[in-house]
Nucleic acid binder design. Structure first.
Lengths: 335, 335
DNA sequence: TTGAAAGCGATACCAA
DNA sequence: TTGGTATCGCTTTCAA
């Protein structure tokens, strides 16, 4: 067995209570000398408190759960990093769960996080609606901060989102101003709130500039490279004309780029392409991708801050934080 | 407070012991009827055992720690996914820690994982030597499986590695056979075992084909895009001639690609480029990157398997698993 | 088949 | 400033 608080107490000829006070740096309640002696023993034996035991005693774990749909999508690692930074600064550990964009796994992850008594959960959900899956946040009194995506009918504690509608309005507007009248739109999975918001932005720009909305130009993707490639191929195969592509994320935009090259349409000469996210790779492809920069670090840090505030029982002045993406113009669009 | 085993016991008019037997699916020791009644209550109240409490009682957590240097490097998310798959199949939870390639953070992560009594740790270390940082694996009897990188003088329980030397021999050989006599080598951080092995492979190919080894052609990078870019720029700036670039990972190779374009040298016409990892993006760049495919899924699953075996006290027939990368030829090299 | 009680490793309250 | 002890929620052994 490993060394316990009891062992240290015995070695130091004090009670467990005293050792506990030393571990937890209680200012009062232990004499200077005793403290030094105990501390020496702790160091000597390399004693580390068993956090499980502490957890059951205090019912707090200094741990926050982070549930992410796809760690393979470069958008998320950046987000995760931001959240981890903030959390570890305040001495919280983050436990990361990857759901592979599967509702079942999402449910499973949340369930085990709760069973492990995390102090709170930050969630990028894949669920459109919170009807079928009643999470136990309320029952266990665990705060839940939504990030990036929202779920209808779910009483989350706080949320941090990007204004997707506005962002896609801006992007579509750029393309329209460049003279494009038929802009293909590669949407995300239909169950995501972000997908609908982005489509709404696209539509409202069309409307603003009195352009016809053609449903044939909207193709659904799944945020993966292949689906961006397939989307363009599909339009091409069906002989549907377009002079620009607006994709719901950079990865699909890059897939589109590849497809356009394969079918011999020059970018940006014949077709302009705009992505979304501003992932690191977006500037490495050829041509470098015009895209919308999501304030990843801010998204993450705001979410973490909100989470910590909730855990520590502070009130939030704003429980729905909204941020703006901004246009990054590169060479996949014309000057 | 949330519902506990005691509560369920009371509602069912049985003892905690009985409920415990039901939760843990003990075949014997509880009558059919009682079992049904208890189970009904459990479902009704949505009772979930407190895993912290279970952990302190059993000193096992069904949890394995995963320590990774940089979640932002696409190589790792793929690895993580593989490990998670295997672990969750066996009902283990994986706790992921990102160290930002910092030894301090690595130490910190391992320390908190141990304090949380994970059953084992899978580690992609950033440490060259295990002199200064005595981890407590032995003290807490926690198995440690190294993955991808090894650490000198560290008594790990098992390790899963790619044969880097062989891989880079193959890659260098390809370039040599294409007639290149001055091959730039973009190395990784000098403290990594993989860096030395890769360099060794490069050197031994040169030797095999009686080529001169010129240290000026070896530039150190840090696995990031910018460092690959900088490496080529540096060679160019110093007027050091080269007709091929062999990079220690794809991300740096892509940086090199970009630099070559910026200085107006055609790939693969004037300069050939080879990367390492075969990350998803390597086929998306222009030109698609010739690279070495690391068997990511196998790496991860072998590591997970080894870990589970160790946790469950099974003996490993092979405690040093070695795998092979294989060449993927694309358009950044000539046919 | 069932239950009582000890034990896991910590915290925290109340006395001394 | 200290210590004794109850407590947290679970498992497990031993008896009934």
């Amino acid at each position: 067995m490993s060394v316990t608080i009891e062992y240290i107490a015995r070695m130091a000829n004090v009670s467990k209570a005293t050792v506990s006070r030393v571990i937890n740096n209680k200012a009062q309640g232990v004499g200077k000398e005793t403290r030094a002696r105990v501390q020496r023993l702790i160091d000597e034996y390399g004693y580390k408190p068993n956090l499980l035991a502490r957890g059951v005693a205090t019912s707090r774990t200094k741990t926050i759960g982070l549930v992410i749909p796809d760690i393979t999508n470069p958008f998320f690692p950046a987000l995760i990093k931001a959240i981890e930074h903030c959390a570890s600064e305040r001495e919280y550990t983050v436990v990361l769960c990857n759901t592979d964009s599967s509702p079942e796994k999402e449910k499973q992850s949340i369930s085990t996080l709760i069973a492990n008594r995390v102090d709170g959960i930050i969630l990028a959900t894949v669920l459109e609606e919170q009807r079928c899956i009643p999470y136990d946040f309320a029952k266990y009194n665990i705060p839940c901060v939504l990030i990036d995506r929202r779920t209808k009918g779910f009483d989350y504690s706080a949320g941090v989102f990007v204004d997707n509608e506005y962002a896609f309005y801006i992007a579509a507007e750029l393309l329209i101003k460049h003279g494009n009248r038929r802009i293909a739109f590669i949407a995300g999975p239909s169950n995501l709130s972000t997908t609908q918001e982005r489509l709404a932005g696209y539509c409202s720009a069309l409307k603003q500039y009195a352009l016809h909305y053609d449903p044939a130009l909207v193709v659904q993707g799944n945020f993966q490279y292949e689906s961006g490639y397939a989307a363009v191929m599909r339009l091409h195969g069906h002989g549907i004309p377009f002079t620009a592509v607006l994709a719901s994320n950079d990865v699909m935009a890059i897939g589109a780029l590849k497809a356009l090259r394969d079918i011999g349409r020059a970018v940006p000469g014949e077709v302009e392409v705009v992505g979304f996210d501003n992932i690191q790779f977006s500037e490495m492809v050829d041509p470098p991708l015009t895209t919308l920069d999501q304030p990843l670090y801010e998204l993450g840090s705001k979410a973490a801050e909100a989470m910590l505030a909730l855990i520590e029982g502070r009130r939030l002045d704003d429980t729905n934080i909204r941020m703006e993406a901004k246009l990054v113009v590169r060479a996949s669009t014309r000057p």
